[in-house]
């Protein structure tokens, strides 16, 4: 009984499921199926996306989920309360932060210029682009810090209800990200001045650029949610 079943299963596999043109007995090995990646050889450049870029993309996915958790918490409080800001709490400085937003968004453009420069092999353009980007990032952080000091002087702190808690957590965590990105930029800048990058070899630059774009792209979303909503 069970023997019969076994034979029929295997016969089916051999006859129906392996079409004639796929059968292979000896001779040269068959053609490998097409696969966008999977070229093997230890990933030495044959893959569609290089290991470093892929790893960075995956990391940014996790970062996005981290912010999604914090933003989710903010949305619960923001749309769960009748008045926002709650009575007695200050309005946030929309004007100054709006200008600051433009500064940060512009830094993505200068970052792009720097990356395009190194792809042409233009090292001076690279150094100039990175320098301007780092400067814009620092200005952004400086303005944010100044605003924080004014808000704290007003008496607006982490313990000022959920309004203060969500504001300082979200903006603070983003600020830390920008701070980390600026530090990374400075490391890369030092490398650029020491002529470590060329038109063909600049993985570290590409990764730093991806991270910078992420940090910049996040800000308009946070600005809209926290300052404008």
């Amino acid at each position: 009984m069970s023997r019969g079943v076994e034979t029929s299963v295997i016969d089916k596999r051999a006859e129906d499921l392996a079409p004639e043109h796929l059968r292979f007995d000896g001779g040269p090995p068959p053609e490998f199926p097409r696969d966008p990646f999977g070229r093997g050889e230890g990933g030495r450049g044959q893959a569609g996306v290089s290991n470093a870029r892929l790893g960075m993309l995956i990391f940014l996915g996790a970062e996005a989920m981290f912010f999604a958790g914090l933003i989710g918490a903010f949305l619960v409080f923001r749309f769960g309360s009748a008045t926002w800001p709650p009575p007695g709490q200050p309005y946030l400085p929309v004007g100054v932060t709006g200008v600051n937003t433009v500064i940060l968004v512009f830094s993505a453009y200068t970052m792009g210029r720097a990356l395009r420069a190194i792809r042409r092999g233009d090292r001076q353009g690279l150094v100039r682009g990175l320098l301007v980007t780092a400067l814009l990032g620092t200005i952004f952080l400086g303005v944010q810090g100044y605003e924080w000091i004014r808000l704290v002087h007003f008496g607006f702190t982490l313990s000022s209800g959920t309004y203060g808690a969500t504001f300082y957590t979200l903006i603070g965590v983003h600020g830390l990200h920008v701070f980390g990105a600026v530090l990374w930029l400075l490391v890369v800048l030092a490398g650029a001045r020491a002529h470590r990058f060329s038109a063909t070899r600049h993985v570290a630059l590409t990764l730093c650029g991806m991270y910078w774009y992420f940090v910049v792209a996040l800000w308009p979303l946070l600005f809209t949610l926290i300052y404008l909503s």
Binding site: G40, L54, I58
Partner: peptide, 12 residues
């Protein structure tokens, strides 16, 4: 990254 990029030849 490893599973996407480092598969051997023929490992679809």
């Amino acid at each position: 990254t490893t599973i996407i990029n480092l598969r051997a030849r023929g490992m679809t």
